Computed example of a mutant assay.
Amino acid sequence: MKTYYVYILECSDKSYYTGFTSKLQARVIEHQTGKYPDSYTHNRRPIKLVFHAEFTNPNQAIESEKQIKKWSRAKKEALINNAFENLPNLSKKKFKD
Rank of each mutant, 00 (worst) to 15 (best):
M1Y: 13
M1I: 15
K2I: 08
K2R: 14
T3R: 14
T3C: 07
T3E: 10
Y5C: 04
I8F: 02
I8Q: 00
L9G: 00
L9M: 11
D13M: 08
D13G: 06
D13L: 04
K14S: 04
Y16F: 07
Y17Q: 13
Y17H: 12
Y17K: 15
Y17T: 03
T18A: 05
G19M: 01
G19W: 01
F20W: 10
F20Y: 10
T21A: 04
T21W: 00
L24M: 11
L24N: 03
L24T: 06
A26H: 15
A26P: 07
A26R: 14
V28W: 00
V28E: 01
I29M: 09
I29G: 01
I29V: 12
E30Q: 12
E30T: 04
E30I: 02
E30K: 07
E30G: 06
H31F: 00
Q32P: 04
G34C: 03
G34L: 01
G34N: 01
K35L: 04
K35H: 09
P37H: 04
D38W: 05
S39E: 00
Y40G: 00
Y40M: 05
T41C: 06
T41D: 09
T41L: 03
H42Y: 08
H42V: 01
H42L: 04
R44W: 03
P46C: 02
P46E: 05
K48W: 00
K48M: 11
L49V: 03
L49A: 12
H52M: 14
H52W: 11
H52F: 13
A53K: 14
E54C: 13
E54P: 01
E54R: 14
F55L: 13
F55A: 08
F55M: 12
T56G: 08
N57H: 11
N59D: 13
N59A: 10
Q60P: 01
A61M: 06
A61Y: 02
I62W: 07
E63Y: 04
E63D: 11
E63A: 12
E63L: 11
E63Q: 11
S64V: 01
E65S: 07
E65C: 05
E65A: 02
E65G: 05
E65M: 10
E65H: 02
K66W: 08
K66H: 10
K66S: 15
Q67N: 06
Q67P: 00
Q67V: 06
I68V: 14
K69R: 15
K69T: 03
K70M: 15
W71S: 11
S72W: 04
S72C: 08
S72N: 06
R73N: 11
K75V: 02
K76M: 15
K76Y: 08
E77G: 06
A78C: 09
A78M: 06
A78P: 04
A78R: 05
A78W: 04
L79P: 01
L79E: 00
I80A: 07
I80W: 07
I80L: 10
N81R: 14
N82D: 10
N82W: 05
A83N: 07
F84P: 05
N86W: 08
N86M: 14
N86C: 11
L87T: 00
L87G: 05
L87Q: 07
L87H: 03
N89G: 14
N89E: 15
N89A: 13
L90C: 08
K92Q: 09
K92D: 04
K92A: 08
K93W: 02
K94D: 12
K94E: 12
K94F: 10
K94Q: 13
K94L: 09
K94V: 13
F95W: 13
F95C: 03
K96R: 11
K96M: 08
K96G: 11
D97E: 14
